[in-house]
Each structure stands twice: as structure tokens, then as C-alpha cells.
Amino acid sequence: MKFKFFTTTVVCIFFTLIASISAQKGQQQEARPEGGFTKKVSGVWNCGDFGKLTLKQNGISVTGVYDSNGGSMRGTISGNTFSGVWSESTTGDSGAFEFELAILRMSPDPTHLNGKWNHTNDRTWQSGWNCVK
């Protein structure tokens, strides 16, 4: 009888531990900066068709440059959002942008910027300005 009780207890502890580990893995993949992670975005980001984006952060203020058309940007971080204005020296275009800071793999810092943008003369948001670090 003692062996059966011991075995049942060990099995229950094992399954509780497995469930806890699985829940933690799910949380790590879905974690967002508001969940206690940093909001540090400085560094080099790969933005697909937009090319390389290099950001420098000072507190909540962020400036950056990107490869496409001599692009530059400046903005601020509020909550899980990095937003501001962009401009391109080659084309003379400018407008607004908004990135959601996301952590899609285990890291204390954001790993993805999921963004949208528009032109100054056309406030219709365009999607697809997505970057990975």
C-alpha cells in the first residue's frame, strides 16, 4: 500500500512539473515588454525589403537610419509601441510609423518590430515594415 501511494505521488508531481514547464515555455514565446522585459531597441535590425535599420536609444527617445532611399527616423517608446516620423533623402518622402515591440523568442529585449507606416500626404496606413534582431 505504501508503494502505491509513493508511486501515485511521484507521478502527480511529475505531471505537475511538466505542465508548469510547458506553461512557462508558452509565456516566453508570447512575452511582451510590458510583462517585465526591457524596451531596449538599440542596435541593428533586419527589415527585409526596407534593408538594415540601425537604432540608437536614449531613454524613451530613439533615432535611426535605414538602407532604403537614405532613410532616417526619430520617435519615442510608449508602452509596447515605438512611433514617430520617417523621411528619405533620396525620394524626399516622409511620413509616420508605428512599431509594436514584440519578444518572439527567449530574450530580455524586444526581438521583433512589427510595423506600419504612411506618407505625410496620405494618412492611409501601410503594413509590412517588420524587423527582426
Score class of each variant (00 low, 15 high):
residue 12 C to G: 09
residue 14 F to N: 00
residue 14 F to T: 00
residue 14 F to W: 05
residue 15 F to D: 00
residue 16 T to F: 15
residue 21 I to R: 09
residue 21 I to D: 06
residue 23 A to I: 14
residue 24 Q to W: 15
residue 27 Q to H: 10
residue 29 Q to C: 05
residue 30 E to N: 15
residue 30 E to Q: 15
residue 32 R to S: 09
residue 32 R to I: 07
residue 33 P to H: 11
residue 34 E to H: 08
residue 34 E to Y: 11
residue 36 G to N: 14
residue 37 F to K: 10
residue 37 F to P: 00
residue 37 F to V: 01
residue 39 K to M: 07
residue 42 S to M: 13
residue 43 G to I: 15
residue 45 W to Q: 03
residue 46 N to H: 10
residue 46 N to L: 09
residue 53 L to T: 02
residue 55 L to W: 04
residue 57 Q to T: 08
residue 57 Q to V: 09
residue 57 Q to W: 04
residue 58 N to S: 14
residue 61 S to C: 03
residue 61 S to M: 04
residue 66 Y to W: 07
residue 68 S to I: 11
residue 71 G to E: 08
residue 73 M to V: 06
residue 73 M to K: 01
residue 73 M to Y: 00
residue 74 R to Q: 13
residue 77 I to C: 03
residue 77 I to R: 05
residue 79 G to L: 02
residue 84 G to E: 01
residue 87 S to A: 06
residue 87 S to D: 04
residue 89 S to A: 12
residue 89 S to K: 11
residue 89 S to H: 08
residue 89 S to C: 07
residue 91 T to P: 02
residue 92 G to L: 02
residue 92 G to M: 03
residue 93 D to W: 11
residue 93 D to A: 13
residue 93 D to E: 05
residue 94 S to W: 07
residue 96 A to Q: 10
residue 99 F to V: 05
residue 100 E to N: 15
